[in-house]
Design a protein around this nucleic acid. Structure first.
Lengths: 211, 211
DNA sequence: GTCTATAGACGGATAGAC
DNA sequence: GTCTATCCGTCTATAGAC
């Protein structure tokens, strides 16, 4: 038990050795990659284990079940993208316009989804097909991130915009962002151009008369 | 062979009895429902067969493999939504404005996706996770439908709009439409309101100066 | 912590009776 | 056309050795 500490250098949880924590992180990363590519149902514990040079049974030292592993992968994903977006907004500072903040959020969400994180993309792709118990565990974290977008869009659209409009705009915007996972080709497409086009469509919502 | 005709009343293919054709359609509908709800990997032939009061082995009289069944379901889906949209456009007639045509296409796509067809929704939800051989079979039909949207958007945006912009607008628009499968709640949301919001965002693309 | 071994369930697919 | 029976593979999960 000598290697256990309340909080070690890598920030692992108390009661878990540094070695166990390293294995755990390796397994999570391998599972995220496989979930992103093949989906939840076809992510097999044998394959995940093989990718980190272990056997399937060994994973049960770190995770209680396949559902537990998947839920952890997806929780890391949604928290990662929220953390990235909030960090960028914080860097922009209080004086940034609502338009600048919304644009920055769009670009960071896309960067994290498309380039940075298998955890985010596996969350987006797998959520619809994951067992209900897993969805239940993710609901709160998802709502938190949803609320961030509602705020960003509400601030941008202005106080005259009704809540139901903000609701639809959020689904349109975030839906368009997340679907990019299925068509975005880094050799052909550009995040800047894609985000720019979204920006122009959002600008159309401002400075108009009510219907 | 007495029941075989070149084209019978139900429009079945030559060389297939009316009874076989009816069974085939039942199986396809059951598979579409299961694929929509549970995804491709978790659609089991045993469950599909049970839903139409048959046994798993019997499906192989109608389909060569699970992949074959899924590809047929998804092919029907993409062709159904294209047929619905084209029929509505034809009804609008030649004199309809590009704006009216685009709006009509948006509404029909949503109606078919969200209310009318498990075939369309199973296509949208399962395509990313289906085996490559299935995707290959669907590629041409998907491209045809994609081209229709490129035309509608190109006509709406006007000749000054570059092809790359139309490309992104199509992905944004169709992505937002298709993601609605994951959030649209008929008890809370309205296709008209959702389509109206999309319409306003698209209007923002018109009557602006180039950047 | 990771291994081997295996239980136990379920999957797609095929053969042959009817 | 559909059934029964079955092959053979894969899966999650567990038990116990090391």
């Amino acid at each position: 038990m000598g290697e256990m500490t309340a909080t070690d250098a890598s920030g692992s949880v108390a009661g878990r050795s540094a070695r166990a924590e390293a294995s755990r992180q390796e397994i999570l990363a391998a599972a995220a990659g496989m979930m992103r590519r093949n989906g939840y149902a076809e992510m097999s514990l044998r394959d995940v284990a093989a990718r980190v040079h272990k056997k399937a049974g060994s994973l049960y030292y770190h995770f209680a079940s396949k559902e537990d592993l998947a839920a952890e992968v997806m929780r890391i994903g949604v928290e990662a993208v929220e953390t990235d977006v909030r960090a960028t907004l914080a860097r922009l500072g209080e004086e940034a316009s609502a338009e600048a903040r919304l644009n920055a959020a769009i670009e960071v969400h896309l960067e994290t989804l498309l380039k940075r994180s298998d955890f985010v993309s596996s969350h987006i792709r797998c959520y619809p097909f994951v067992p209900e118990s897993v969805r239940a565990e993710l609901r709160e974290a998802r709502r938190r991130y949803d609320r961030l977008w509602l705020e960003l869009i509400g601030d941008f659209a202005g106080p005259a915009t009704r809540a139901v409009e903000v609701h639809y705009i959020r689904h349109i915007l975030v839906g368009a962002l997340n679907q990019s996972l299925e068509w975005f080709n880094p050799n052909r497409d550009s995040i800047e151009d894609f985000a720019g086009q979204l920006h122009r469509m959002l600008l159309g919502l401002k400075g108009r008369h009510a219907r």
